[in-house]
Every structure is written in structure tokens, then in C-alpha cells.
Write a protein that binds this DNA or RNA. Structure first.
Lengths: 263, 263
DNA sequence: CGTCTTCATTGATCCATATCAATGAGCACT
DNA sequence: AGTGCTCATTGATATGGATCAATGAAGACG
């Protein structure tokens, strides 16, 4: 894609290259997951002994809808598309970012997956046999709490998305999406779209064509999209038109279980 | 509303009347929650000592969006509307049925509610101070597992709804909704809509008018809606047109944590 | 360099769905 | 009976967004 001389705030995560601390072993990988920090070494050992560390290339199918989970999968690096499928049609339900669990809700209850999972950016996964993972949940309280926090964040992201879909028009969804990408800065911002446009369109619940048209229409609010770079001379107009709602657009902290220290 | 002579499969849950075993005390109420059955008496005692049993009339506001949870609320009987609100507009995200926890995701992480909760049918609630509940989660492993199962079911319902919204047209959503109400029977079925039409419309993500029109259009498939009763002479046509997808329309078992016996 | 492929844009068109407005039905209250 | 209320229906109309089809731009590859 073309690239102008803009150098402010750019930086799409490069597919394949990851700057994360490389985990040499499953044990080290588990150790490095911040929201597992309160889990005992013993349990981490037990999990690690059952675990496989996997590097999975972009495009790989992790699992399909209706499959019964074979593994609990920790996403350590890279990213994972979660697709809802119905016949020919499919929709991007979420794009999972590390570090997270890949649909623990299905694994916990040994229920069929409701979504198809595909690797977006080459991923580092840690796989634990589903049964072993459930056993660990049954044995280790701290692990259970950690997963509870993780799942709570996932639930809240779903609620946010349902509100976004049902309470906003296409233009608003696109506008808010872009504004949320901008961050704090107010003048002469340039940000790269983090993923391909057709993925954004699907996630926002519209066709690519509609998304494309909505992007051009953003010019009215001072947002110019050239290729995968969005340029904003003055963000105030856009911010005024597309007021972010912290109860829709906000981020969800994964690590909900804090120690007593937080109070 | 008018009522024909149809007597098959009728029975909207009567607002206010509940046939459930009346819990005289918080302790008994907790005891009666099947998915807490593995939680120790000690913890149930501890919770009960902090808990208040409440009977709340229809229409009451339980909490608003953006509020920080003051209580963990168990829905023992009745039902609760969860509304996503944005300015003037609001949408019914879910209608909670007993026995369930009311948005534990917010309570667990001490995060602002993303939804407004209102009593639909007069409800029996068990309230536990949020902090006390989090402490109990921190102390009791079995409770933690039970909540994990509860939350997993809630997450999966959200995913189902997002798929329903993004992958189906209005006609399909309405058709599948009605077909899922029919149950097994094939001939001469009459079922009452469980809730008012404007609530169904909001939950399915459409305007009341559109819902109303979609209902009349169901005649084409052998589904007649008269007042709040849907009558079906032969369900085969409707079932053929509106094939239920178990990964969208299925029910979610709340109690995911089974004992070893299940295997 | 040309070709193929993938992804995005753009235009023309159609249809689904929202919106606005009026009417109607059932129900509570006086 | 009459009034007002809520909820649902129905019609007319507008428009948002999907769909179909064609074009374009940017890599990948031989």
C-alpha cells in the first residue's frame, strides 16, 4: 500500500514478527502470563507438564464451530479471528488479542464451540488438554479465579458489541471505530488501520462496500482515509459527531482479580 | 386480549404468581440453587449471613448503566430485563430467567455495569454485598467454579445473539424465534408469546412496527398470530423455512460444572 | 514485464427496514 | 358509558444498507 511521509502514530503490528519475550518452554510461557501471576507454581507445573507450545502460521484453522474442545488454548502472541458461521455466511465476532484464553466458555463446560477460530497473525499458542485444564480448574482455586476474570472481560466485550450493533447506525459505528483509534492527540494525526478493511466491516456488521462508502463519507468530519492510513488534521469535529461512550467503546481489563492491595 | 378455545400448550408465566418453593431465609434460598450444590455449607452460611432476601415488584429499577455494583444479585424467581442504553435509545440485551446471577461480570471485577436492570416479573432476589461476594469468591473454590459456569453460559448466550443479529434477516429472526417456541409438537399447536411484543422486537433488534409486520407475514408459513397466541396447524412448513441452528438457537445449560459422575 | 490474485473502490439498483402518522383494541379508572 | 392509557396494527413514505457488477490498485510470481 502507498505510504505518505506521515510518521506520527503509525505502526501496524507486523504480521509474523513479534517482539514479545520468547518463551522457550511451556512453563516459562505460563509464568509470563500476568493474569496467572497468583496461580501457584505447583499448578503451573502441572499445567505445563500437560501443555504443548505451538507456533501457528497465519490462516490456520484452530477449530470449527460445533467441535467439542480438545484443548484449552492460551493465546500468547499473534491474534485469532473468531467467526460465527451460518451456512455460506460468516461474520467476525471478535479478533482476540494476546494474552487471552481462546473461548474458555466452551472448554469449561465441554460444550461445542459456537465459533470458528482462525489465526490472523502468526500466533504462539499454549495448548493444554481440555480435560486436564478442567481438572486444573477443579483443583486450583487461583486458576479458577484468573479464568473467571478473563471470561468476565470477554462477556463484557460481547455486551459492548451487541449495544454497538443495535444502538448505532453504520456511520456511527465506523465513526466511533475510527475515533477510538485516534487516541488522545488532537491535531495532525495519522493512524494505520490495525486490520484489513473487510475484517473491520464484518466485525462492525456491515458489507465491505458499505464500509468503504462510510469511510469516504468521513471526509465530512475531517477524517481522510487513504489506503490503510487515516489522517486527521483536526479531530475535534469528528469527536463532536462521534462521541465515544465508555460503556460501548471502552477497553476491558482482562485481569479483574486484583489483590487486596487495590483497595 | 381475546382468547380462543385453544387449550394446548398455553400458559404464559403469570406475572407475580410464582409456584417456586418459597425460601423463608437467605440460607434456604442459597441451599435451593442447584448450581451451588457443591458449595460448602460453611460458605453458604457466610454468604447468607451477609445476604438480604428481597421481593421486588415488576418495573423496579435494579441498577443503572455506569453504576458500580453494590451487590451480587441472585435471581431466584421472576425475571429481569437487561437494557443497553445510549442516550434516548435503548435495546433489550437479555431477559434473565431464574435461577441466575445478574451480571456477575460487573460484580467480579468491580466494573461499572454496561446495562440497566429492571424487574420484568416480580422477582425474588438474594442480595449479597459486592465486596462480601468477591471475598467469598476469593475464599471458596467451589463457589468460584459455580460462578464460572454461570458466566460461561451468559457469554455463550451473548455470542448466540450476536450471530443471530448479524447472520439473519428480520424475517429469519422472527421465524426462528417462533419456531423455537413451538417445541416438539407438529400439529395444531398453540403457544402464547412469553413476553410483550415490543420486548421481543427490541431483543431481536428491530422496531415494533417491523416486528408486527413480520408476524403477519408468518402466515405464509402456516403460523398465525392472534393477539399474543401463535397458532400453527402444521409446523412442517415453518420448520423447513426456518431451520433452527443449535449453535444459535439452542439453550445454554447454566450448570456447567458437573461432578466426575458425568463421564 | 505481464499476469494473476487479493483487496478495495465506485456506480447502479433494489429491497429491507426504519420512521412518521393515524387507527384500533383492550383495559383501568371514574 | 366515557375517558385516558398502553400496546399493537396498518399504511405511506423515505432511506439506509445490501447486492450485483465493473473497475482499479497493489503485491506476488514466473
Amino acid at each position: 500500500m502507498e505510504n505518505s511521509s506521515i510518521s506520527h502514530r503509525l505502526g501496524r503490528p507486523q504480521v509474523g514478527a513479534d517482539g514479545l519475550p520468547q518463551a522457550a518452554s511451556a512453563r516459562e510461557a505460563l509464568q509470563g502470563i500476568s493474569w496467572l501471576r497468583r496461580v501457584s507454581s505447583k499448578t503451573l507445573d502441572a499445567l505445563a507438564s500437560q501443555a504443548v507450545l505451538h507456533r501457528v502460521p497465519a490462516g490456520s484453522l484452530l477449530f470449527n464451530q460445533a467441535e467439542i474442545p480438545a484443548f484449552a488454548q492460551f493465546l500468547l502472541a499473534g491474534s485469532v479471528e473468531l467467526w460465527g458461521v451460518r451456512g455460506e455466511a460468516e461474520t467476525l465476532v471478535e479478533l482476540l488479542q494476546p494474552v487471552d484464553l481462546i473461548v474458555p466458555a466452551a472448554v469449561i463446560g465441554n460444550q461445542p464451540y459456537l465459533m470458528r477460530a482462525r489465526i490472523y497473525e502468526e500466533a504462539h499458542l499454549l495448548l493444554v488438554g481440555a480435560e486436564a485444564f478442567r481438572d486444573a480448574l477443579a483443583c486450583d482455586h487461583a486458576l479458577c479465579r484468573a479464568v473467571l476474570g478473563c471470561l468476565a472481560a470477554q462477556f463484557r466485550r460481547q455486551v459492548r458489541m451487541q449495544k454497538n450493533l443495535k444502538l448505532r447506525s453504520v456511520e456511527e459505528r465506523v465513526g466511533c471505530y475510527l475515533v477510538s483509534l485516534l487516541g488522545q492527540a488532537d491535531r495532525d494525526i495519522a493512524v494505520r488501520l490495525p486490520i484489513e478493511k473487510h475484517l473491520i466491516a464484518s466485525q462492525l456488521g456491515m458489507s465491505r462496500e458499505t464500509f468503504s462508502r462510510a469511510l469516504s463519507a468521513m471526509g465530512k468530519f475531517g477524517i481522510l482515509v487513504r489506503g490503510d492510513v487515516i489522517e486527521v488534521a483536526d479531530a475535534s469535529v469528528a469527536r463532536a459527531r462521534f462521541t465515544l461512550d465508555p460503556l460501548i467503546d471502552g477497553a476491558e481489563p482482562i485481569d479483574l482479580i486484583q489483590g487486596k492491595a487495590i483497595r
